[in-house]
Write a protein that binds this DNA or RNA. Structure first.
Lengths: 340, 340
DNA sequence: GAAACAATGACAACCGATTGCCAAATGTTG
DNA sequence: CAACATTTGGCAATCGGTTGTCATTGTTTC
């Protein structure tokens, strides 16, 4: 019984195709990547042979000889943070649509891991998307000089960025709280190295001054639900009646802790989160939070990066994209308690 | 001003090091990968040069010549499903510890995407971890013949697997419900192609027969919170007083829908989830669910795969690993309502 | 019908490593 | 001091493609 031509278990190479068609390997390569440069009949034969052998190009070899890897690195500080799920999905879908592979790296909230990952990716990826970078401006700029980079939620002059406009949403949140009668508000800050947290606080402080209400900054708190307990206690101790948390994880952790301590939300304390992550709508009470199109942010970042990689057509790529953010009011905010 | 030797912006190669040390490239290669085969002084010189040039091996080239890519593919049906967060983190950490890179792929709950991803990974990865595969047994076996595979939550003879033992937890859940007085229980099934769902139902059915209570299977439901609404309505319509959902997403969706409809949980209806995902502890009411060490499952899967890849030392690798599961009782289950 | 031109495809170098093979250098022993 | 065993390290082929160069073929034009 004759063995099928495709029966060899080793993946087919262009050489197999070349041998089968009686042409040179380079012709096969051209037929598949530069179809116009090859006789249409030859091309047809080659394509048929490729199909029959179920040929798939070896991406390693391709990368090695062409210099392009067809991969894009995506760096996130913490994979288990739900905020990044939608972001990752956005980048994944958009990259796949463009024929790129996503290399996902968890940098464990560490600038060192982040830097070494970048160095590593420099050779194995065509570009990098960095979310919430913990690196210094200089380090980021230096990295961007070596490999195309788009940042998300980190704005450094000279590096294309997608910024989720939470600062402007903080004033919405503040107005919401003020209209409910709150005059003493706390901001539960995120990591000191988080630019998002800093910007948000700056915006909040400015808005508060404008409106003549008292805001104070507490923290920093790690962006995890576990930090919510400390945040809740700090908020209670500070005497405020409402707080705006760096993100939903902290806010949700606060809700749990406040419940444990018998402090009612929103009757005794109002809580506002940020990001509208998975869970914000079904926690108890449902969380008032600042929402934004996160998946789209991922897609936009990919588009910007790809525009940088293939500067072929039309419109010059923008180097900065601001994602709108709005306040979603749910059950965790309510009227300020009457003064006792 | 003299330019630094390391100043060229192109990444250093072993040839640069070789030139700098006055040896052949192959010697550099050996010095770095087979230190014993090279004179200790030469090695020292080479290492110093490598450090000075901040040399990093090109993984593409390495893969091409050695046949080993140093990467492992991890296939998940849906990245945004929180269940996979911990799993992914487990694989990521364990892989990184072993010096491997993780290639994460979202197969979008599609067997076709799954199959094509596998074919793709066959060349760019040394092995694959497949979670909750939607492929047929034959397809999975065929794939496993081409590249080392470890499955998670999918048991096929001949393919090493990590199985989370939820079936045995279902009887715990059932006993819990029975002790609360429930006699009519529904199982809200997952996708028909999900082996986990099938196994869980089989186990539940057997346990129910043994204990003489009524269980019925409803569904299938997609494993998303949105499906919870339909599941809730189906459960209510069927007249049961308790239900066990395929996973926490469906269960949480049910909680939301039941609340909308004014059906109290657990007074009117008890709900049990599965997986103990992020959110199960802070939803309203907190969800009684079947918990298991998911992150560890990811780590174990990686260990099994790596044992397969490097069959060097000691103990023969096991081909099947069962992760224990236990019932975590929270607020979503309570006494059966009195018969009206 | 010859010259000019375009289309086509073969050859070979190259990307950055790994690795088998062999020669040179070193050290040991009788 | 010769003969032998053992390191040590260089040469060159190889992995699977891409791409520049060039010879050949076929077509068009005057």
């Amino acid at each position: 019984m004759a063995m099928q031509a495709a029966g060899t278990d080793r993946p087919a190479t262009i050489h197999d195709i070349a041998a089968m068609c009686g042409v040179a390997a380079s012709t096969v390569s051209r037929a598949l990547s530069t179809p116009d440069r090859v006789n249409i009949r030859t091309r047809a034969r080659i394509e048929a042979a490729a199909a029959q052998l179920s040929y798939t190009p070896n991406s390693q070899a391709k990368a090695l000889s062409s210099g392009r890897t067809g991969a894009v690195g995506v760096l996130v500080p913490d994979i288990t943070n739900p905020f990044y799920f939608d972001l990752i999905r956005g980048t994944q879908l958009q990259l796949k649509a463009a024929g790129y592979t996503q290399l996902l790296v968890d940098t464990e909230e560490s600038d060192e891991v982040e830097a070494s990952s970048m160095e590593q990716l420099r050779k194995s990826a065509d570009g990098i998307i960095v979310t919430a970078s913990r690196l210094s401006d200089e380090a980021l700029l230096a990295a961007a000089a070596k490999i195309p980079i788009v940042t998300i939620n980190r704005d450094v002059a000279g590096v294309p960025a997608v910024v989720i406009d939470t600062p402007s949403a903080t004033s919405q949140a503040l107005d919401h709280l003020i209209s409910l009668g709150h005059t003493h508000v706390a901001y539960m800050a995120g990591p000191l190295t988080s630019q998002s947290s800093t910007r948000r606080w700056t915006a909040l402080e400015a808005a508060a001054e404008e409106r003549g209400v008292d805001v104070r900054r507490l923290g920093p708190f790690a962006p995890k639900t576990q930090s919510g307990a400390a945040a809740a206690d700090a908020a209670v101790h500070s005497g405020v009646t409402a707080c705006i948390a760096f993100n939903d994880l902290i806010a949700i952790g606060m809700l749990q802790r406040l419940r444990e301590r018998g402090i009612r939300v929103p009757e005794d304390m109002s809580v506002v989160g940020c990001d509208d992550i998975f869970g914000a709508d079904f926690c108890n009470p449902p969380l008032t939070t600042m929402a934004s199109p996160i998946e789209q942010a991922g897609r936009v970042a990919v588009s910007m990066l790809l525009a940088q990689l293939n500067p072929l057509a039309g419109g010059g790529s923008r180097s900065r994209s601001l994602m709108p953010t709005h306040l979603t009011v749910r059950g965790s905010t309510g009227p300020a308690p009457a003064v006792s």
